[in-house]
Simulated scan of single mutants.
Amino acid sequence: MEALLSSTFTVAIAEIGDKTQLLALILAARFKNKTAIILGMFLSTLINHFAAAWLGQWAINWVSPDVARYLVAASFFAIALWVLIPDKIDVKESRFYKMGPFLATFILFFIAEMGDKTQIATIVLAAKYDSLTMVVAGTTLGMLLANVPVVIVGHFSADKLPMLWIHRACAMLFALLGVATLFV
């Protein structure tokens, strides 16, 4: 249960102001079918995060437990610093839009998540916890908690949120996860 809650909370916070959240806003403004956008987000995230979590669990088996602990902690510290750099997204017209809201969302979210903070966090969380299912469920739920409201209330702008403080709090969360990994 710790893996599920930690993964959900970590990704939901990390996703605020992230490029995929900005993409959700753009897609919500572009398409009227919010259900198709949400379903595309869900399936794309589920597949992407499953692959990331599998990679994290596979990779952690190649190193000793002590080295693994230091690598996971260092990864959390690196993500903490990375979160402090706000994301931007290119708002030009995508060729995927003509595929409709579901396929456009599925493809664009999958591409946007490649190498993204939340995907890296999923790899690290899967390396930390020995529960692929709970990590994937948690990170997917975290993505949905952060992005579904943006799709539903697409006219609400992220500019109205205190992004500097949100990014700082998120960085602190990742730093605390790094410390906890080292000492717990």
Rank of each mutant, 00 (worst) to 15 (best):
Y97M: 03
Y97T: 06
K98S: 14
K98W: 00
K98M: 09
M99I: 01
G100A: 06
P101W: 03
P101R: 05
P101G: 11
F102L: 13
F102C: 08
L103T: 12
L103Q: 12
L103Y: 11
A104E: 04
T105C: 11
F106R: 05
I107W: 00
I107M: 09
L108W: 04
F109N: 11
F110N: 15
F110E: 12
I111T: 07
I111W: 01
A112Y: 06
A112W: 02
A112N: 08
E113Q: 10
M114Y: 09
M114D: 00
G115T: 00
D116F: 01
D116S: 09
D116R: 05
K117V: 15
T118R: 04
Q119V: 02
A121H: 10
A121G: 13
A121D: 11
T122Q: 12
I123E: 07
I123N: 07
V124S: 04
L125C: 03
L125I: 05
A126E: 04
K128E: 12
K128P: 07
K128Q: 14
Y129P: 05
D130G: 13
S131Y: 01
L132G: 01
L132C: 02
L132D: 02
M134Y: 13
V136W: 04
G138D: 09
G138E: 08
G138C: 10
T139W: 03
T140S: 09
T140M: 02
L141D: 08
L141V: 14
G142F: 01
M143A: 14
L144V: 05
L144N: 01
A146E: 00
A146P: 03
A146Q: 02
N147D: 15
N147P: 12
N147L: 10
N147V: 09
V148K: 08
V148E: 11
P149M: 08
P149C: 09
I152F: 09
I152E: 04
I152N: 03
V153Y: 15
V153C: 10
G154N: 13
H155K: 15
H155M: 10
F156I: 15
S157M: 05
S157F: 00
A158S: 13
A158G: 06
D159K: 15
D159E: 14
P162W: 01
P162D: 02
M163R: 06
W165P: 06
W165V: 07
H167W: 04
R168I: 15
A169V: 08
A169E: 09
A169L: 14
C170F: 00
